[in-house]
């Protein structure tokens, strides 16, 4: 083989409704490593891409939320399998994007895949842990069930490009919601690869939509959008967070406030990221005599 083979350059695109479109706006931006070296050109999503993604997520919601918890778990586990197959690619991208050494990047990718498996396991246990029969004083069989909130907009963490992304996306999907994610602006490449992973596992089109771009630009449109049921502001610019929360109030969205500082994503998250996107339905069923 000749050593001066031309490089096959990859075109980085969005992941919306199971397909890989360019941004409707035609915009792209340069992705660099922490030292400023050029890595790739990524699509720069606009508000209209976000709008299209919300339409796709809404359309996908009935099927995904209606699937059995067991089936959702299987599908999510399959995602982890495909991620494992892309392990080396994820390691390269995390190392280049976050400026990590090979071993630390590998540890982050391992943790991200393990995190995904962990959330896949939660799908069919949420009902038992968060719901159950309630003792009531009356002739009723009374029970509570966690149900998904709906379409969730996620502003993904800006620093942790894979482990952070998985830590905010997987719990949304595990609960039965569909997601529109705005990825890290400066470190979007692992998210693009995760889109390819989602497209080649059994996740139905539209369940997860990944937009590379600026959370500060798209965030307000998603926060105000009447057809978005919840918004996770984790990756929102600090100075904008309060304004986003105010906009979200217009349509009474569930809001997850951003942490003061990006947390250590390797810590055990518990149920803190599952419960904000679950609604408790309580049924009072009359008991026969």
């Amino acid at each position: 083989m000749s050593t001066d083979r031309l490089a096959v350059r990859k075109t980085y695109k969005l992941y919306v409704n199971g397909a890989f479109p360019r941004s409707e706006s035609g915009r792209t931006y340069e992705v660099t490593d922490p030292k400023g070296g050029f890595l790739a050109n990524a699509s720069w999503a606009s508000r209209k891409d976000a709008r299209d993604a919300v339409v796709a997520a809404r359309a996908a919601f009935a099927k995904w939320s209606g699937a059995t918890a067991y089936n959702r778990g299987q599908v999510l586990y399959r995602v982890a399998e495909v991620m494992e197959g892309r392990h080396a690619q994820f390691c390269d991208e995390v190392a280049a994007g976050e400026g990590l050494s090979g071993s630390r990047a590998r540890a982050a990718v391992d943790a991200a895949i393990d995190r995904w498996v962990w959330y896949a396991g939660w799908t069919d246990k949420l009902g038992a842990v968060l719901g159950g029969a309630n003792p009531v004083a009356g002739p009723y069989f009374d029970f509570s069930l966690p149900e998904p909130t709906g379409v969730v907009a996620v502003l993904a963490p800006q620093r942790s490009s894979l482990l952070g992304l998985v830590s905010v996306l997987a719990p949304v999907l595990a609960g039965g919601n569909t997601a529109v994610v705005v990825t890290s602006r400066t470190r979007p490449l692992p998210a693009v690869t995760l889109g390819e992973v989602l497209a080649t596992s059994d996740v139905p089109a539209g369940v997860a939509n990944l937009l590379t771009g600026d959370a500060g630009e798209i965030g307000p449109w998603l926060a105000e959008h009447d057809d978005v049921d919840a918004i996770d502001l984790t990756g929102a610019p600090a100075e904008q967070a309060m304004e986003l929360e105010r906009l979200a109030a217009g349509s009474i969205k569930r809001v997850v406030r951003p942490p003061a500082e990006e947390p250590d994503w390797s810590a055990n998250p518990g149920l803190t990221r599952l419960t904000p996107f679950l609604e408790t339905k309580t049924v009072w069923h009359p008991m026969g005599l």
Binding site: R51, V54, R58, W221, E224, H225, D226, D227, V228, G250
Partner: peptide, 9 residues
Amino acid sequence: TGHYSGPDH
């Protein structure tokens, strides 16, 4: 209104 609406409306 200046913001996106949804089929619920």
